[in-house]
Computed example of a mutant assay.
Amino acid sequence: MARGLRRRARGQRPDRRRPRNRHNDSRGAAESRRARSHRAADRFAVTRNFRSGSTSITWMAPYFGYARSDKRRGGRTPVMGRLVADFAESAGIDHVIAVDLHSQQVEGFFHIPVENLSAVPAIADTLKSHLEPESVIVSPDAGRVKMASAYASRMGCPVAVLHKERLNGRKTAVSRIVGEVRARPCVIIDDMISTGGTINNAVEALIRVGAAGNFIVAASHGVFTSEARKNLNPIPPSGKSS
C-alpha cells in the first residue's frame, strides 16, 4: 500500500501486478524445460529432412501429450498445446497426424492440416471377446461421453456417465452416475491414463452403487506416471485392464 501511495505521489500508476504463484511458476518451468527438450529434438529432425531435399514434412504424433494443456488453469500457467503447435509450424511442419487428442479444440491451435485418428475401432474390436453379458460402457466424466458412445455403438452396449465435481485445484470426486450399472460388469474407457486417479475414482463410485466386481479399463494412451501404481493398486483384484 505504501508503495502505491508513493507512486501516486510521484504521478505514477500503482503496482497492480498479480502476486506470484510459486506452484504454477514451478510447474510452468518444468513444462517449459520438457517442451524445449522435445522442440530441440524435433527441430533437428525437421532441419535434417529439409536439408536432404524433403518438400513436405508430416509430424506423426500418436500421443500429443501437450493436448492436456489446452487452456489456462492459473494466472501464470502456460497453454503448452498452443506453444507446441506454434513450434511445429515455425519448424516447417505442414501436416500433423495424431491419435485421440485429449480435446478437439487442440486442432484449432494449428494453422496446418491436422488428422485426429481414433483408436476406438481397434480397441473395441479387441474388447468384444472379453465382454460379459449385460456389460455397460462407462464414461469417467462428461468430456468422454462422445468416445463412450463410439465404443457402445461398436460393441452393442449401453452407456453410463459419471459426473464429477472439483474439490480443489487437483482433486475431484464423482457426484452422480447417469445410467444403470447395478449388478452389471463395467467397461471404463478414457483417452489416456496418466496418474490413474480418474480410473480409481470411477471404480470406487461404481462399487458404491452396486456394480458387479468385474471391471475392464481401456484407454488409447497409457502414460502411467509415478503416481499411477499407488492410485491403481486399490482396484479390486477381480478388475481387468486392457
Rank of each mutant, 00 (worst) to 15 (best):
Glu31Ser: 12
Arg8Val: 08
Arg82Asn: 06
Leu232Ile: 04
Arg16Lys: 10
Met192Trp: 05
Ala35Gly: 12
Phe87Ser: 09
Thr198Ser: 14
Arg16Phe: 05
Ala45Phe: 05
Gly11Thr: 04
Asp190Tyr: 03
Cys157Lys: 08
Lys146Asp: 13
Thr195Phe: 02
Arg27Tyr: 10
Leu83Gln: 12
Ala218Ile: 06
Cys186Ile: 11
Leu206Ala: 08
Ser241Phe: 11
Glu204Lys: 10
Gln12Cys: 05
Gly81Tyr: 06
Ala35His: 15
Val79Asp: 01
Arg51Gly: 11
Met80Lys: 07
Ser26Met: 13
Ser226Cys: 11
Lys128His: 07
Lys240Thr: 12
Ala202Ser: 13
Asn200Trp: 03
Ala148Trp: 01
Glu227Thr: 00
Ile57Asn: 07
Val136Ala: 01
Lys230Val: 13
Val136His: 02
Ser32Val: 12
Leu127His: 00
Phe64Trp: 06
Pro78Leu: 01
Ala148His: 00
Met1Glu: 15
Pro62Gln: 10
His38Ser: 10
Thr225Ser: 11
Ile189Arg: 09
Arg184Cys: 04
Glu115Trp: 04
Gly197His: 03
Ser129Lys: 14
Asp190Thr: 03
Ala88Phe: 08
Phe109Met: 04
Glu227Arg: 05
Val79Ser: 06
Gly156Phe: 12
Ala219Pro: 09
Pro140Trp: 00
Phe215Tyr: 10
Arg76Phe: 08
His23Phe: 14
Arg18Tyr: 12
Val99Phe: 00
Glu132Arg: 08
Tyr63Cys: 07
Thr58Gly: 07
Val138Met: 02
Arg182Ala: 12
Gln104Ser: 15
Glu31Leu: 15
Ser37Ile: 15
Arg166Ala: 01
Pro140Gln: 02
Ala205Ser: 06
Leu167Phe: 00
Gly4Arg: 14
His38Pro: 01
Pro234Leu: 05
Leu131Asp: 07
Phe224Gly: 02
Ala9Ile: 06
Ser194Gln: 13
Pro133Gly: 11
Asn201Gln: 14
Val96Thr: 09
Val178Gln: 11
Ala150Lys: 09
Ala29Glu: 14
Thr126Ser: 12
Asn214Thr: 14
Ala41Pro: 01
Glu107Asn: 03
Leu232His: 02
Asn24Ser: 13
Glu132Val: 06
Met80Ser: 13
Gln104Arg: 15
Arg73Pro: 02
Glu134His: 15
Ile188Arg: 05
Lys164Trp: 03
Glu132Met: 07
Cys157Asp: 03
Ser135Glu: 01
Val136Leu: 04
Leu101His: 00
Ala35Asn: 15
Val178Tyr: 11
His163Pro: 00
Ser241Pro: 02
Ser153Cys: 01
Glu165Thr: 11
Ser32Met: 14
Pro121Phe: 10
Ala152Leu: 05
Leu127Ala: 04
Val46His: 11
Asp15Met: 00
Val159Ser: 00
His102Thr: 02
Ala67Phe: 03
Pro158Asp: 05
Arg208Lys: 14
Val174Lys: 04
Gln105Phe: 04
Pro185Glu: 04
Ile189Ser: 09
Ser32Gly: 09
Gln12Tyr: 09
